[in-house]
Simulated assay, not measured.
Amino acid sequence: MSSVDDSIRALLLLMPRMVGRTKRIKVPDELAGLNLAPRHLSLFAYLLFDGPLHVNELAERLEVTPATVSLMVSELTRKGILERREDPDDRRRAIVTLSEAHRPAIDAWLARGARAWRAALEPLNDDERTLFVNTLKAYEDAL
């Protein structure tokens, strides 16, 4: 790339294609018809990668209010995708986890994106990966 403008042009052309391809990733059959949205993928990813979490922890990570997460968790619990249980250390708090019945489908759904990111990031060194992730975060913040 010879200039910032050339890079911006390349990214403005690339990003819609990436989003379009991501949206075309097929929802697993066992999750089809459950009206899942992109916001659910982030919640699923945190629970898949980090294990059971409290509603407030999910809210902080998703950068939404605890009330928003609580509504999402209630909806997904009714659909059998998530399980909510009482925290044994503090009965006022709920611990949220993926249901074991849906964990394999959610893992498979997220795996395609994870494989694509691994292919893109593995050739980079640690500093380059950090720069890339920080650049994407800066772009998101600027939007």
Score class of each variant (00 low, 15 high):
112 R>P: 06
96 V>Y: 00
116 A>E: 06
119 A>C: 05
88 P>M: 09
126 D>M: 05
107 D>T: 09
89 D>L: 15
120 A>D: 02
86 E>V: 14
124 L>K: 07
121 L>S: 10
112 R>S: 14
110 L>W: 05
85 R>Q: 13
104 P>I: 09
103 R>C: 02
87 D>A: 10
121 L>P: 03
93 R>N: 13
98 L>M: 04
100 E>F: 01
102 H>I: 03
100 E>L: 08
109 W>E: 00
124 L>R: 07
101 A>Y: 10
115 R>M: 13
107 D>N: 04
117 W>Q: 11
88 P>E: 09
111 A>D: 14
112 R>T: 15
101 A>W: 05
100 E>R: 13
103 R>M: 07
112 R>F: 12
114 A>Q: 14
123 P>Q: 04
92 R>M: 11
90 D>Y: 08
108 A>L: 06
94 A>W: 05
118 R>Y: 03
117 W>M: 13
92 R>L: 11
100 E>Q: 10
112 R>A: 14
85 R>D: 08
106 I>R: 00
87 D>E: 08
100 E>K: 12
102 H>E: 03
85 R>F: 06
108 A>H: 05
122 E>V: 15
119 A>V: 11
100 E>T: 12
111 A>V: 04
124 L>T: 05
98 L>V: 06
123 P>S: 04
103 R>A: 10
104 P>E: 06
105 A>W: 04
124 L>H: 08
105 A>K: 07
108 A>W: 00
108 A>P: 01
125 N>E: 11
112 R>L: 15
90 D>W: 06
116 A>R: 04
109 W>I: 02
123 P>V: 02
103 R>P: 01
106 I>M: 00
103 R>Y: 02
110 L>G: 06
115 R>P: 02
106 I>D: 01
118 R>Q: 11
125 N>I: 06
101 A>D: 12
111 A>S: 13
112 R>V: 15
121 L>F: 11
125 N>V: 12
114 A>T: 13
122 E>T: 15
86 E>M: 11
87 D>F: 07
112 R>M: 13
126 D>Y: 01
98 L>Y: 01
123 P>N: 03
121 L>N: 04
126 D>N: 05
101 A>E: 15
104 P>T: 10
98 L>I: 10
87 D>G: 10
88 P>W: 07
96 V>A: 05
119 A>H: 07
96 V>C: 08
99 S>G: 06
90 D>K: 11
104 P>L: 08
95 I>F: 00
92 R>Q: 14
110 L>D: 07
106 I>C: 03
110 L>M: 11
91 R>Y: 04
106 I>F: 00
121 L>C: 09
108 A>N: 04
117 W>C: 09
98 L>T: 02
89 D>W: 08
109 W>T: 01
121 L>R: 05
122 E>D: 15
113 G>E: 09
93 R>K: 15
